[in-house]
Design a protein around this nucleic acid. Structure first.
Lengths: 146, 146
DNA sequence: ATAACTTCTCTAGCAACTAGAGGTTCAAGA
DNA sequence: TCTTGAACCTCTAGTTGCTAGAGAAGTTAT
């Protein structure tokens, strides 16, 4: 049996994060020692590793909750799993596309700046006027978020 | 003079967001009508457009606060502006690199899945074992966030 | 036994907003 | 002029995925 600290080390997930996952129901309530401290077996470690890996791949916790539910029913078809993964892939591709547009605009802004005073700084001017923009990166930055 | 609703339309920033910006000190406190409603002039509109554009480019509000401070002192050299913009460019490039790695791992996972039952789903297996991973995307997802 | 370390619960905070409750004010039509 | 309905006001709380801290209790090593 592992203490929460050992589990934390083993899975590469911080201690408060483990407690947080338990709190939101991603991990089942852990058994307790006589002194009320959490104790974990190998199943908990595997489940936590799964969560961690999925988080590393950018899956939101809700999607991970679904994936865990599916992995508990091995006889079901895996189409649902695939669709979650594909949605995640699409999200990632969207973010990349968006960030590439931002990158080129930032580069353009920066290279145009001659390095004088703020009064004729291209960066400030571009941010202020919006007129020199090539892309219409205007809408919903939220989609870039991870 | 513009009401907050008109300003919202003009700048493409939602009404509660404008109030939020005022609350955190990004926008100065607006003048009020006799009935206590906010009224804005052209200066506020320009400032808000600046903020919006910078947000579209992914600058965090703290950086925008700095940029606004700098743009109010046009006689200063613009090196500070440049360095903020360059930091933002670096951040964007980092996120892109990270997301590209995620994308290829997701693609690999998905294409390997033969589409049977969950029991032999590659996606679930890969998430669980971490052994088939090529990349060590393990550390600090936080850097991808926007 | 005592010190140092870990764990416990609980609350609050981060970014950057968004949503809602419950109450005013404003602009336009009858 | 009155009235309706939209827009405005303040305030609180929620979002995502944690992280930080307080203060108390358990555990481990010497």
């Amino acid at each position: 049996m592992l203490s929460i600290g050992k589990l934390s080390e083993a899975a590469g997930v911080k201690v408060p994060t483990i407690r947080y996952y338990e709190q939101i129901g991603l991990l089942p309530e852990a058994g307790r020692s006589t002194g009320n401290q959490r104790l974990y077996g190998p199943a908990a470690r595997d489940r936590l590793a799964f969560i961690r890996h999925a988080r590393d791949l950018g899956f939101p916790l809700d999607a991970i909750r679904d994936l865990l539910g599916l992995s508990d029913r091995p006889d079901q078809p895996c189409a649902a799993v695939d669709s979650i993964a594909k949605a995640q892939l699409l999200a990632v591709e969207g973010r990349i596309a968006r960030l590439m547009a931002l990158k080129s605009e930032l580069e353009r802004m920066i290279t145009q700046c001659a390095g004088g005073s703020v009064a004729d700084c291209r960066v400030i001017e571009c941010l202020g006027s919006h007129a020199h923009c090539t892309t219409d990166h205007g809408r919903d930055l939220a989609e870039v978020s991870e």
